[in-house]
Simulated scan of single mutants.
Amino acid sequence: MTQHVRDIMTSQLVTVEPQASVTAVAQKMRDEDIGIVLVIEGDDLRGVVSDRDLVVRALAEGGDPDEKTVASACSDDLVTITPDEDLDRAVELMREHSIRRLPVVEEGHAVGIVSIGDLAIERDARSALGDISAARPNQ
């Protein structure tokens, strides 16, 4: 049976505005125990920022992270998927663009996110990635 992105996506999104400081975003990631935040302007998805983006694009450049905005660290060349697309399409997009998380967009608005871990749990929960992804986070 074909499954759709909506069947496994996370719909509890954590978002920030482009003007948010790098420090505030890092604290939000820590508090929510997540590795990616969606950058939203108004109702529109403008980018995504991962924990790695914060390190490579913001902290490694130096300067005051309280003064740097997330807009300077986020990826704005977005690859997205709709909730009604097949999981095979999500896998294809992730492979093609070498990404681990894929924002789910409906009518221009972010409604979810699907990760490589979500796909691993769904496709092969006994695989190393599926097993790791299903485990409770370290505190």
Rank of each mutant, 00 (worst) to 15 (best):
E122I: 07
N138A: 14
I121C: 03
G117L: 15
C74Y: 08
I81R: 11
Q12R: 15
D86C: 13
L93R: 10
L13K: 13
R95Y: 10
E17M: 13
P18M: 12
V16Y: 03
V114K: 01
S127K: 09
V70P: 00
E17P: 03
I132H: 05
R123H: 06
A71W: 09
A71G: 08
A134D: 02
M94S: 08
D64S: 01
G62Q: 05
S21P: 03
A134N: 07
V22E: 07
E92N: 10
A24N: 08
T2F: 14
V70D: 04
D88G: 15
A90F: 05
D84Q: 11
T80E: 15
V39C: 06
Q139D: 10
L59Q: 02
S21C: 00
Q12M: 15
S75Q: 09
A134G: 05
D7Q: 14
M94Q: 13
E122V: 05
M9S: 06
V70S: 04
P83T: 04
N138L: 15
Q3V: 15
T80C: 14
H4N: 15
P103T: 06
L78F: 04
A20N: 05
E92C: 05
N138G: 12
R123W: 05
V49M: 03
Q27Y: 07
D118A: 07
A24Y: 01
A110Q: 09
P137H: 08
R100T: 01
L59T: 00
E96D: 12
A20D: 08
S75T: 14
I81N: 11
V39S: 09
V5T: 08
G63Q: 01
P83K: 06
A20H: 05
G130W: 02
I36N: 04
I36A: 08
S72C: 10
D31W: 07
G42T: 13
Q3E: 14
H97I: 12
V22R: 00
D53W: 02
L102A: 08
I34C: 03
D118S: 03
S50P: 00
M1Y: 02
I113G: 06
L54R: 01
V49E: 01
L78S: 14
R123G: 07
P83S: 09
R95D: 10
L38D: 03
E92Y: 10
E32A: 12
E122Q: 13
A90I: 04
I121Q: 11
A60T: 09
D77H: 14
R57F: 02
I8N: 12
I99C: 13
D88W: 12
M29K: 00
T2K: 13
S50W: 02
E67F: 05
P18L: 09
A71Q: 11
S72L: 13
L102Y: 00
M1G: 08
M9E: 11
A90E: 05
E106C: 13
L13G: 15
V79G: 12
G130Q: 03
